[in-house]
Write a protein that binds this DNA or RNA. Sequence first.
DNA 1: TGCCGTCTGTCTGCTGGCGCACATAGCGAA
DNA 2: TTCGCTATGTGCGCCAGCAGACAGACGGCA
Lengths: 244, 244
Amino acid sequence: MTTSEAPQQNHLLAALPANESMRLLPQLELVELPLGCVLYESGAPMQYVYFPTDAVVSLIYVMESGATTEIALVGNEGMVGVSLFMGGETTPSRGLVQSAGHAYRLQAQALKDELERVGGRRSGALHDLLLRYTQALMTQIAQTAVCNRHHSLEQKLCRWLLLTLDRLPANELIMTQEMIAHMLGVRREGVTESAGNLQKAGVIEYRRGHITVLDRPGLEARACECYAVVKREFDRLLPHAGAE
Amino acid sequence: MTTSEAPQQNHLLAALPANESMRLLPQLELVELPLGCVLYESGAPMQYVYFPTDAVVSLIYVMESGATTEIALVGNEGMVGVSLFMGGETTPSRGLVQSAGHAYRLQAQALKDELERVGGRRSGALHDLLLRYTQALMTQIAQTAVCNRHHSLEQKLCRWLLLTLDRLPANELIMTQEMIAHMLGVRREGVTESAGNLQKAGVIEYRRGHITVLDRPGLEARACECYAVVKREFDRLLPHAGAE
DNA sequence: TGCCGTCTGTCTGCTGGCGCACATAGCGAA
DNA sequence: TTCGCTATGTGCGCCAGCAGACAGACGGCA
């Protein structure tokens, strides 16, 4: 087993104090998340929550027309399924594996039991951690709204590459331009053009389904402020205990 | 005093069970919220949370360029200042009074004391209610992201009018087209044009700073699916105890 | 090695919404 | 009633990104 398969690879799990960690770890189950796998469907009750280690999951909204937009990204910094924790049980979006990898999953009921443990106050570290993570997630969603309104396709692409990169162990994404277009809610041709520009500038390099980031600072310079706002907020709310 | 100034006019406060309500109500202070009043600033710690009765507050993000976009709307269905509850203390947006009115405010510390009451489990109704409200708010933000990506200015305007109308006692908004443009993050001229179309169609009527909705179903027909998604999610998560 | 499906590159309109510049008209205060 | 500020109406040029239609090219698989 590689280190990518230790629970501590997920920052939320890594940040738990020993006593809570001891209770939770035995209930976690390592699962493989293949590309395109749907972790939950819009409006459908969830069986599990997922703590990704080296997988990246997109929360996307599917419109009546079939068009899609990504709402947020979740990787090893977070958890998929906050609506279980929030009490809503379902949410009007889909959880789609966007980069294959692994996650630790936990039965929905096990999460609730841990949060509402009789006898203890509901003030465990897990609860606080999930609250803060949820706030960071809200910031990410809000910034997506801002970005969608004001920034160019190329800026959005840079922001998205950076957000994804932050959640991956390597600097290569296994990802076609068509998939990126779906995430951003734009045309594939537009992604081709912007990616071409970035490649010409030496910022990225790509071939058929693979994108390698060569010049991260260059990417940051071309991205809009949205990336930095989200990054700063995650760092502030979840000073990470995990590796990067 | 009019009924608009009873705490129960706010749906969250109205939904509290008697014992929690009794503890909280004495600590609530009725305040007037004039148009344009800033309840909190991006990145600044909040002194209070606000439970609006007949005021409507916009959560807006201000870009480096000075351009603005609304992230979400809060009225008598909710609370301004969830980041206090979430543990983040601040948030990268501004709380701006968009329609003058009243709200009950609560000291930040009083909210925390109530939520972390020693001895009791942190499972009070207020806590659950705020969690569910926060999930509904997330849906509103997410749908703003979707709408900003895929829908026309006119559809966005209709969605926004409906969301605002749902939070007001009357069917008239005191609101210039310029303010609406700032909320939606579009040009004022675009709002003028769309509003003109809606008036020609007999859906709304307006004069200098006043907009009256004449045909709500007509407005709903012209809005995108985003409004319905948000409305359904609020109704599902917070079956309202308050009047409407 | 060759084949075929899928991914990528490019072109030709077309249009919603932007930026700018003014003209006009309500409405509140004096 | 008049003045003046501010809100609204409108025209013009412009461009990012859309829609659709192909051509080419890579790469996995037989």
